[in-house]
Design a protein around this nucleic acid. Structure first.
Lengths: 250, 250
DNA sequence: TTGTAAAACTAGTTTAAACAAGTTATACTA
DNA sequence: TAGTATAACTTGTTTAAACTAGTTTTACAA
């Protein structure tokens, strides 16, 4: 769930995050001033500010010019999140973070046709792996998904790898880490496949997540559409409004 | 939709974004090198890098050490977004950005009870405005929402203000800009109110967005639950994976 | 011609310093 | 005592420079 910092600013970020989570700095408290923290961490003001900026982007703190940095992390809210959904979508979406059991329903090599090209933005004729997979934890199915992986990038994919983790394979074997993911979430009516595999209860509509993933060097190598079980689905989002900005067309 | 930059880095960010959108730098192209751009914009390397970092966070470019900065903005994809949903959720969520017609269904002053306190994280007894509003564009209803505004922050709220924009009132009259919003998205079964106001077609489930908003100085002043019309709902998300990080529990 | 080492690129990290622009505390004045 | 100007905080912006760590090009040697 967490990262191994190999920079000064990342380790300061991680440490401050811990201190917040362990209630040393509580909800609505002010962090020590920059000058003070610079002494604590024996670093430059820039490096410290970089750590704080990241904490802000992740919704832990909020900086106010002239006043200080206020903690807005609320364990109360965070706990509710876990209680409500078992697994947050931000975790769901990051497939490395949760150990899903994966069942491969279909494994094929195809070329992108006109219809698929339009929705995936892959050029027509691109050789891709076409995979259908079921993601589950224990006996509960959570996601049915269709993946299209560019064969030029994801070389020599096998059913075994698809059953384990394609991302792990990319990272560790092909040394081609994923760098950016663009995600679109919509609500769609459940189809026959969804009804077959997911426990829909009385729901007739489900969240559909469309994924476009890029490698390190900017090539989009994956297009994926995931159908999620609706009752356990949670998406968490955190947004910093630019305080100096105003909307032109309010 | 856009912001008025009053910083150097924001104006560089805005300019580069425009140049990307106007196809001067196309999908998969490399931006000019930092050294080059520093000359173009007559700024320091730090300031330029700050602009590029923001472009990266917004999904326009991706930096690769040793190589350069690659454009991953695809007008194709972006256009599809608009075509599919009319209005993206990121716009929807930012209520200042789209001109919804707002109908106030209920306007009341209450104190937070135990039940509301648990879901909102407002302390029991907090005086709040309790408002129900319908958001529509033309004759189409998009959102039914319940707002709870802290009366200590949002002073002297009236039905007229609620019918216009509470955020505008906060910003321009009370000079209390909103700084951070935490958002949780779940799928719920439509209730009687949803059926009454929203055009659900055959859907029996809808996206529900729960909002926690903070002022400049870290006080959570708003708790809002919005029920959205499912067929027009789109959420767009952009995620940069830390390339130097690895998951501990893969 | 091919392979390899070096040089010339690219972006990433860290420090330092000066100044701007807010907020709070202090001290002085009426 | 009350009000106000000032000094002493706070974070925000910008520039500069040195170094690190990747990638690509160049040039030389086999």
């Amino acid at each position: 769930m967490d990262i191994i910092p190999n920079n000064k600013y990342d380790s300061i970020y991680a440490d401050l995050k811990n201190r917040i989570k362990q209630d040393e700095f509580q909800y609505q408290d002010k962090l020590p001033s920059e000058t003070n923290l610079v002494l604590q961490y024996n670093c430059s003001r820039n490096t410290l500010r970089r750590a704080i900026k990241k904490l802000g982007a992740d919704g832990y703190v909020q900086s106010v010019r002239g006043k200080g940095v206020i903690v807005i992390y609320n364990s109360h809210l965070e706990n509710d999140l876990i209680k409500n959904g078992n697994h947050s979508f931000s975790q769901m979406a990051d497939r490395n973070k949760i150990k899903f059991k994966t069942t491969v329903l279909l494994f094929d090599e195809i070329e992108v046709d006109k219809k698929l090209s339009l929705e995936s933005t892959f050029p027509i004729g691109t050789p891709v792996y076409y995979i259908k997979r079921l993601r589950s934890i224990g006996s509960d199915n959570y996601i049915v998904e269709e993946n299209y992986f560019m064969r030029k990038v994801v070389k020599d994919l096998t059913i075994n790898i698809a059953q384990d983790s394609v991302y792990k394979y990319l990272n560790e074997v092909l040394n081609e880490p994923i760098a950016t993911t663009k995600r679109i979430l919509t609500i769609g009516l459940a189809d026959e496949q969804d009804k077959k595999y997911l426990d829909l209860k009385t729901y007739n509509a489900i969240p559909i997540v469309t994924n476009y993933s890029f490698t390190n060097d900017g090539t989009m190598f994956e297009y994926t559409v995931s159908h999620h079980r609706p009752d356990k689905f949670i998406f968490y989002d955190q947004n910093e409004t630019n305080p100096v900005s105003f909307m032109l067309n309010n």
